[in-house]
Amino acid sequence: MAGLGKVLAMHDFVRMAKLAGFPQLSDERGVVWKRFKMTEQSTFVVLDRSGTVVARGRADVDKLPDVLDPQLAG
């Protein structure tokens, strides 16, 4: 996860969305956002272990674990 907000806000979101098992990245300068052409906070890009984009879209916080869980299995 790469958030534009402060680290504390990112930790709050991770707890709320139950995403603690996934790597988190503080992206306050927006470097990752620019790289993946993110346009809003509710957009997500999921990369596999090799860095290939395997999912992209608008984040429904309740469904994000379903999008991310297959990456843990791989």
Rank of each mutant, 00 (worst) to 15 (best):
A17D: 03
G51C: 08
L8Y: 06
F44Y: 14
K18Y: 07
D48A: 06
L8S: 09
R29F: 10
V45E: 00
S26D: 10
F22I: 12
P23Y: 09
V7S: 06
K18L: 12
A17S: 15
V14A: 04
F22R: 05
A20N: 14
E28Y: 05
M16V: 07
V14M: 06
M16L: 11
G51W: 07
Q24I: 13
L19A: 07
E40I: 04
K37F: 08
K37L: 10
M16C: 04
V53H: 08
V32H: 01
Q41R: 13
K34S: 14
V14W: 00
K34N: 11
F44N: 00
V53W: 06
T43R: 04
V14D: 00
V46S: 03
G30K: 05
D12H: 09
Q41Y: 09
G51S: 11
L47R: 01
R15V: 08
P23I: 10
A9M: 09
M16Q: 14
V32G: 01
T39D: 07
T39C: 04
V45R: 01
T52C: 05
V7Y: 05
D27H: 04
G30N: 10
R35E: 15
A17H: 05
D12E: 11
V32R: 01
V14P: 01
F44D: 01
Q24Y: 06
D48M: 05
F36A: 00
K37H: 10
V45I: 12
M38N: 00
F36L: 01
Q24P: 03
L47N: 01
F44Q: 01
A9V: 09
P23D: 12
L25H: 07
S50I: 06
D27V: 04
V31Y: 12
L8C: 06
D12T: 11
Q24W: 04
E40N: 12
Q24R: 14
Q41D: 10
F22C: 08
L19S: 04
V14R: 02
F22K: 04
M16I: 08
V31C: 07
R15E: 13
L25T: 11
G21E: 14
M38C: 03
T52G: 06
T52D: 11
G30T: 04
S50D: 14
F13L: 06
F13R: 01
E28V: 12
L19K: 05
L19Q: 04
K37W: 05
K18H: 13
V32F: 06
L8E: 13
D12K: 10
S42K: 05
E28W: 03
T43H: 11
D27P: 02
V31D: 13
P23L: 10
S26H: 11
V32P: 02
L25Y: 14
G51R: 07
G30M: 05
L25F: 14
E40P: 02
V14G: 02
K34P: 03
M38W: 00
V53K: 07
D12M: 09
Q41M: 08
V53S: 07
A9Y: 08
S26L: 08
K37A: 15
M10A: 12
K37N: 13
R29P: 04
V14C: 02
V14E: 01
W33G: 15
E28D: 12
S26K: 09
V46C: 09
G21W: 08
F44I: 03
